[in-house]
Simulated assay, not measured.
Amino acid sequence: MQKIEEMDEMIKERNISMENAILLLKHVGYNKVLKKFFSYSFDYSLLSKKMPGMIIEEERRIEDKNERLLVDLCECFALLNFYFISDELLLIIVPRLLKVASKKEENEETQKEAEMALLALSNANTYYDMPKELYLNEMTEIIKCHQEHHNMTRLAFQSAWQFLINRFFTNISLEEVIMNELHFSKEAARELEDLSKSVDWKRKEEGKGEREVKEVSVIKRWLLVIDDFLNSCTLWNEELTGLIRSIVQMIRASRDNHKEILNGCLDSLRCTAINRNVEIDDLLKSGAVDAVLEEMKQSTLDDFILWNCLDFFLNISKRLKEEEEDEMDETKRKELKREILEKMEEEGYEDFIKSFREMIDFLNRKYYDCLSLNISDYFVSI
């Protein structure tokens, strides 16, 4: 907060121009959103109070409108304070930034402008119930254009999807567009696979160069948006099974040196086990069950990883109980249960029961979940 206050004072004393202050703060916001850290210092600053009025005044200007300044103001405000915003500002900022992101030139400068605009849009509060007319056609066109021409950076493309998935949280009617028109699962799987190839997984994160650090950051952002989607989706198709396979591959790649990515992947698999629209058969075919069992045997296992793994199996177990899975054929239910049990026995399931029984109560207290104290209940009874 002190640094923002110092900038307020510098502007007041004319040691820095308002335009340069906006540019500087915009890049602060860029790093804030990309690195997922929270700071409320801007919210209480003089600039935060002045900026909405500046945006509205510049937008209403008929003559000598400074388009570049208006975009900078919109991006700066969206990157730093897109949580509480008036409807009037929303109707200015969203179309303005979509216009910047819609430019089709494939030069580096245009790509950077689109990246900044889309990252700012991706920071919009998930709970904003925006009218589809404000963004859907333009964002759909932006995503389709990239699918055909690959005219955006990886971060820009991910940010476009994040904005759209955030809107899905309050508007379930977007699912058809997201799944069947824009093919989110296929695109997310491809991006994870391509990003995985460009990361040296054997090197620890702190030893990576600037470019690789940014790509790792984009992977983390993809995993967050995949989680949000898996928590809410009601449709299912083969493309989603392919996405789970990509997550499984990333679990194995990130296991040694990228604990945050590993946790994100396991959390995504936990979401699939909870979502009753995901077939348990798909979790077997995609390798999700094998990946979680493999993880439970690692010497690097920590509390959060263990909680994700156990909750994954707890939710599958609940769904395979006859009274809770009425639509499943009884023969199929027993077959799936036996197959999962056999996999667990192959991986030393009896040892898991012995090793983890005493930790369940601790994990319950720490993560407020409902893991059974009698872990041997999981899948033992066919």
Rank of each mutant, 00 (worst) to 15 (best):
G287R: 10
T234F: 14
L262W: 06
T234C: 13
R245P: 02
E239Y: 06
R255Y: 03
I219F: 05
S217Q: 08
K259M: 10
S268Q: 07
D228E: 11
I247W: 03
I219P: 00
H258D: 07
I274Y: 09
K214I: 09
L224C: 10
L235T: 13
E260Q: 12
L266Y: 12
I274A: 09
I274T: 10
L230R: 04
N263T: 13
L293C: 06
E215N: 11
I261R: 07
E215D: 07
N277C: 15
V218C: 01
S232E: 08
S217E: 04
S254A: 15
N237Y: 08
I244W: 00
N237I: 03
V289H: 02
D227Q: 14
E260R: 14
D290Q: 14
E215H: 11
L284P: 01
T272K: 12
N277V: 13
L293A: 01
S246R: 09
V225D: 01
A291F: 12
L269Q: 08
N231W: 13
D227W: 12
L283A: 03
R245Q: 11
N231M: 11
K285F: 10
N231F: 15
G264D: 04
N231I: 13
K214P: 02
S254Q: 11
R245V: 04
S268Y: 07
K214G: 03
T234R: 15
L284F: 09
Q249M: 14
A288Q: 05
I280Q: 02
S232W: 06
L243I: 05
V213N: 03
T241W: 01
